[in-house]
Amino acid sequence: MKPAPFKYARPDSVDEALALLQAGGDEAKVLAGGQSFVPLLNLRMASVESIVDLNRLDDLAYIKRDNDTLRIGAMTRHRQIEVSDEIRAAQPLLCRAAAEVGHLAIRNRGTIGGSLVHADPAAEWPLVAAVLDAQCVLRSQDNSRTIAAREFFLAPLMTAIEPNEILCEVRFPVAPVGAVWGFQELCRRPGDFAIVAIACQLTLDDGGTCSTASLAVGGAHSTPLHVAEVEPIISGSQGEAAVMTAAAEKAAAAVDPSGDVHGSADYRRRMVKVLTQRALKEAWAQKRKRALQ
């Protein structure tokens, strides 16, 4: 099996990559880790005139912390994030999500930027980017702009990126003091795409009362969905069962899932409710665990 013919270039700098992309026009595509794009080419579900390979751009593979912001280069591999001590200290939810991406050989190769731009609504990075309000830094030959992840995803496999742009960096806020999180993913086998996944981050005071809350749903909507409506329900609470149920019902009402062979729309909606309750419980349990230490 082989992809339809294409032309290929492997630039050594971001500027060169942007120039090649500009020259290639609408028919040029960027190759990051290739763990989703190359299967599409192999199966000839996609064909392209030319490919700009970013894999030699070491200046796009980095993890840096600037005060309260984690800056992750778009070509950073899932595995590098999974095992990064710096990220584990600053925003451990990212390590947790990275560990759920595909399998070891896929995590060795696949990149956070590639996953975000591929925009599979069931993938881990779009979900985590939405829940943590990440910012995406896009560059074209003569422009640079930053767009919120919550505005970046438009539809399944569609984002706000222009054909001449490259996603260069993703910025995540460092977890604030008192932050706890939950991450729940339902899939048939480890490494599969989620049928439904929920991620949340809460800020709790010393007594366990929630001051801020963010929750997002993956796999049950056309894009990863940040459910802003749950924040007023959870804020001010101490994670009482009734609060979690009300929040879970709000999340289930907010999604518009489609059904497929892995689960009907109705099943997905029910699972949003179940997993939202579990994710919130997981977050409060982290608080109790820390209190015991």
Binding site: V38, A105, I106, N108, R109
Partner: peptide
């Protein structure tokens, strides 16, 4: 590191 050789081009 382990990789899937069907998801890489030889030129890479």
């Amino acid at each position: 590191e382990s990789v899937r050789s069907c998801l890489l081009f030889a030129v890479q």
